[in-house]
Design a protein around this nucleic acid. Structure first.
Length: 312
DNA sequence: ATCCAGTGCC
DNA sequence: GGCACTGGAT
């Protein structure tokens, strides 16, 4: 008998009332759907995934077999604008490795590229209803506050998550903790008055004690790209440096005095970019010509998409 | 200008 | 352990 019986019950009854039950990946047990949602949700907010990328992706690749049989560029095209493009490459690699279905154990899932501790556990819990703890940044914060874990490392948080797990209803329990973390026990403010775990929470007096947010340092940078359009096609190249590595981008140029088409701002990881666009006449190196009509559905980043207004 | 979020490489 | 990797919302 778990010593957490009462608090488990309170948590689940809150979740039944207030949880985000209509998220599409919570209405299915399909492991591919759940796995896809978790990859998309890595470092990415729910709304964009739910409303656009997740449904479109599943429409185009309804099964993991469809995905495995696709071309990488089709996959990247559906990922275009979502960011962290390595996720799409790893997703595709994992599909190739799992043509007959994704593995169903924590260990095998974790061996797939792009699947770490969190995603493997999430799939086992949310799709397979296995009795495993799940720790993402939201759950981690909830547990730190609840158990008063100051300056504790991830390994230990996972131990607490395991100990606290409701083995009667592990899936609902994990989802409840997540929703609590994203809706009530948030990074900046903890609404302890309405929290179902308030009674036993050790962090309620000083919730912010358990979350140190280090202020980000941003680096300003100027970038210069060239636009060359011929016969209704735009010249792109595969990026050879780490910025948008291996993605199709406009060719980089040296800053020019003439043929300036315009500029825009873009945020890229720790950089705050001023992007300048120039009209150019020639390019060296290998060029990929993209039809202007197909530009919107090309495997390109948001930065490259933003440049469109200067050459369309 | 700030918010918000996992994996993997070194 | 530290750092790189994105983008839209607010």
């Amino acid at each position: 008998m778990s010593s957490y019986k009462a608090v488990h019950k309170t948590l689940l009854s809150w979740y039944e009332r207030e949880g985000r039950h209509s998220l599409p990946w919570r209405l299915t047990d399909d492991i591919y759907h759940v796995y896809l949602s978790e990859i998309m949700l890595q470092q990415t907010q729910v709304n964009r995934v739910r409303d656009e990328y997740y449904p479109l992706f599943l429409e185009k690749f309804p099964t993991i077999k469809h995905l495995a049989d696709a071309d990488l560029n089709e996959v990247l095209s559906l990922w275009s604008g979502l960011g962290y493009y390595r996720r799409a490459r790893n997703l595709y690699l994992s599909a190739k490795l799992s043509k007959d279905g994704l593995p169903t154990s924590l260990k095998e899932l974790k061996s797939l590229p792009g699947v770490g501790d969190y995603t493997a556990s999430a799939v086992c819990s949310f799709a397979l209803h296995q009795s495993v703890p799940v720790v993402d940044t939201n759950i981690s914060r909830v547990l730190k506050r609840h158990f008063g874990l100051l300056g504790v490392k991830d390994k230990i948080i996972w131990k607490y998550a395991e100990k606290f797990l409701n083995i009667e209803q592990p899936r609902a329990h994990n989802l409840a903790l997540m929703d609590l973390g994203s809706m009530i026990c948030t990074l900046k403010s903890a609404e302890c008055e309405i929290c179902p775990l308030e009674k036993n929470c050790q962090g309620k007096e000083e919730p912010t004690l358990y979350t140190q947010t280090k202020k980000k340092e941003y680096i300003k940078m100027e970038l210069y790209f060239g636009v060359l359009v011929q016969e209704n096609k735009i010249a792109l190249k595969f990026s050879d440096d780490n910025m948008y590595k291996d993605m199709l981008t406009l060719p980089k140029v040296d800053p020019l005095e003439e043929n300036f088409l315009g500029s825009f701002k873009h945020a890229y990881t720790k950089y705050r970019l001023d992007v300048n666009i120039y009209k150019i006449e020639e390019i060296d190196g290998e060029i990929v010509w993209i039809d202007l009509e197909e530009f919107d559905s090309a495997p390109i980043s948001s930065l490259t998409k933003k440049a469109k207004k200067f050459f369309e």
